[in-house]
Amino acid sequence: MPPATVSLDADPFAPEVLEGPLALQARLREAGAAVYLERHGVYALARYEHVHAALTDWQSFQPAAGVGLANFRHEKPWRAPSLLLEADPPRHDAPRAVLSRILGPRAIRRLRGAWAEDARELVDRVVRSPEFDAVADLAQVFPLRVFPDAVGLEHEGRQHLLPYGDHAFNAFGPSNALVAKGTPHVAELSAWVGGQCARERLAPGGFGAAIWEAADRGDITAEQAPLIVRSLLTAGVDTTVHALGAVLYAFATHPDQWRRLREDPRLARVAFDEAVRWESPVQTFFRTATGDVEIAETTVPDGKKILMFLGAANRDPRHWNDPDAFDLARDPSGHVGFGMGIHQCVGQHIARLEAESLLTALAERVERIELAGTPRRHLNNTLRAWSSLPVRVRTG
């Protein structure tokens, strides 16, 4: 560590920090542009300006060495690296192009009507009871219903998707108790997910089959196809579940914003992006310096890990006015909750469609939504999530 570098003895993966990360995020933003975290030997970026720059400069801040704490230059990953998150051009280019086409505007148009109807059916059933758990009954159920259908996944075994994704995102952090909790089940979960990525297991007409068709055309290789399907199954469920949990919590605690959405349901997508900014379901990602990299007046040495605090950047008062407010009058575009640059989330438009479908259906039926008990956090080394969100609704 260069002698002039600001350092902190703080652990962003400690349970109390995962439970409530805002104080540490503010401390990091004020400490400096790049802060050395002694516990893990990494450099932390928490200001919007520098997080955005690191996300877009893949040449200096390398994803291919792993987007977690493990450094793939020296350590063997627990599974084959993601071709979307953990590969750099040119290896990254063909898989990204294929998936961008498959998840693009044509898919949105094809799915919109069916997902809107699915959301109405789910909401109609759930709100028959004035009190329910918005995580268990809505935020988990809807993505686990519509997204695997769109991929072409078989129905049996879908319950494995959430624990598999939970472990994958935990594994981006240190080998702590959260990782240890999932380790005994990794082999079983990985085998199931890997099996679903095979051509013969995927229904015709879905995203998965389209990926294999791209391999048949030579756009990608047959070896790449199952890894791309796996990326959909790893990152396409948990993140959306937790983002939906975030927006439902936001509305349950901000009745004025719920009234605004009901008055103008076209704000559903704005609401979703504002919730992603405000809560940042994906809190952190790592990069690796490809040389001695200058960040403001700090030099990050070659090969050192850089921990980008997406959640801190999304509440940086240097970039956002009144950043701690959830406000549908805000333009949240530019938030880094989906990443930024060539490695940003390729499925973000699909996630927005899921949110638009569910929020629109709720706004049609529900006059008021409020907390009916104390929400409980689900702790994860990378994700900010709710395990339970008891709510009370009034329909009309």
Rank of each mutant, 00 (worst) to 15 (best):
A275P: 07
A275M: 09
A275D: 02
A275S: 00
V276R: 06
V276E: 00
V276M: 01
R277C: 12
R277G: 10
W278I: 05
W278Q: 07
E279C: 07
E279K: 06
E279N: 01
E279H: 10
S280I: 03
S280E: 01
S280F: 05
P281D: 08
P281G: 11
V282M: 00
Q283V: 09
Q283Y: 03
T284Q: 13
T284W: 03
T284F: 09
T284N: 08
F285L: 14
F286Y: 14
F286D: 06
F286Q: 13
R287W: 09
R287F: 08
T288P: 03
T288Y: 13
T288R: 14
A289T: 10
A289S: 07
T290L: 09
T290W: 01
G291I: 02
G291C: 01
D292W: 02
D292N: 09
V293W: 02
V293F: 10
E294Y: 03
E294H: 13
E294L: 14
A296R: 13
A296S: 15
A296V: 12
E297W: 08
E297A: 14
T298L: 07
T298A: 10
T299G: 02
T299W: 04
T299P: 03
V300H: 05
V300N: 04
P301D: 03
P301F: 03
D302F: 07
D302Q: 15
G303F: 05
K304M: 04
K304D: 15
K304E: 15
K305L: 12
M308W: 06
M308L: 15
F309C: 02
L310I: 06
L310C: 09
G311A: 12
G311M: 07
G311K: 01
A312W: 00
A312S: 15
A312R: 05
A313T: 10
N314F: 10
R315S: 11
R315V: 07
P317M: 09
R318V: 03
R318A: 13
H319E: 13
H319S: 09
H319P: 04
H319K: 15
H319R: 10
W320C: 14
N321R: 12
N321I: 08
N321Y: 11
N321L: 12
P323Y: 12
D324K: 12
A325Y: 06
A325S: 15
A325F: 06
D327A: 11
L328A: 00
R330I: 02
R330V: 00
R330G: 03
D331T: 08
P332R: 02
G334I: 08
G334D: 04
G334K: 11
G334M: 11
G334T: 15
H335E: 07
H335L: 07
H335R: 05
V336P: 06
G337N: 06
G337Y: 00
F338E: 02
F338Y: 08
F338Q: 07
G339H: 11
M340K: 14
M340C: 11
M340W: 13
M340N: 15
M340V: 10
I342F: 02
H343T: 00
Q344V: 08
Q344K: 05
C345W: 03
C345R: 06
C345P: 06
C345L: 09
